[in-house]
């Protein structure tokens, strides 16, 4: 699978995101507590751009009146109709088996490795002293 260098690690602090374009595809990279995840920047429902959404958590309930809120900041909510997607998997919370957006494997690589390796770095200049976010498409 082609691997693309899309950002330096310090460009995307914890809780933030960056929109990148790889091979004409818009992908939004999230930093969840130091782990990086990539989602196709397109809601499968009607095409809202997920990078414009707000972060949310999951509210579960076993019974009316009992609520459990968890995973704060790990869910992206579509800016249009509010579909919730798990940033780790791309699955929607409302209908996970049928409605999901493509997710990408993201890794961190040292600049030193990248300078030697067969990576594509169309938009990011790589230098040996930095760490980089690399996405597989």
């Amino acid at each position: 699978m082609p691997r693309h260098v899309v950002a330096t690690v310090d460009e995307i602090p914890v809780g933030k995101r960056k929109l990148v374009t790889v091979d004409d595809r818009e992908i939004v990279i999230f930093n969840l507590n130091g782990e990086f995840y990539g989602l196709l920047n397109r809601c499968p429902h009607q095409g809202g751009k997920l990078c414009d959404g707000v972060l949310a958590g999951i509210v579960k309930s076993e019974n009316p009146g009992d609520y459990d809120y968890s995973r704060s900041g790990e869910i992206i909510r579509c800016p249009w109709h509010g579909w919730h997607f798990d940033i780790r998997t791309g699955q929607s919370w409302g209908d996970p088996d049928r409605v999901y957006t493509k997710h990408y494997t993201v890794s961190i690589e040292a600049g030193k490795t990248l300078v030697e390796g067969p990576y594509k770095a169309e938009t990011v200049e790589v230098c040996v002293d930095n760490d980089y976010i690399v996405i597989e498409t």
């Binding site: 460009e11 995307i12 933030k16 995101r17 960056k18 929109l19 818009e26 920047n41 809202g48 751009k49 990078c51 414009d52 800016p79």
Partner: peptide
């Protein structure tokens, strides 16, 4: 936030 897209 590092957002630089809008739905244009």
């Amino acid at each position: 936030m590092n957002i630089h897209a809008s739905n244009v």
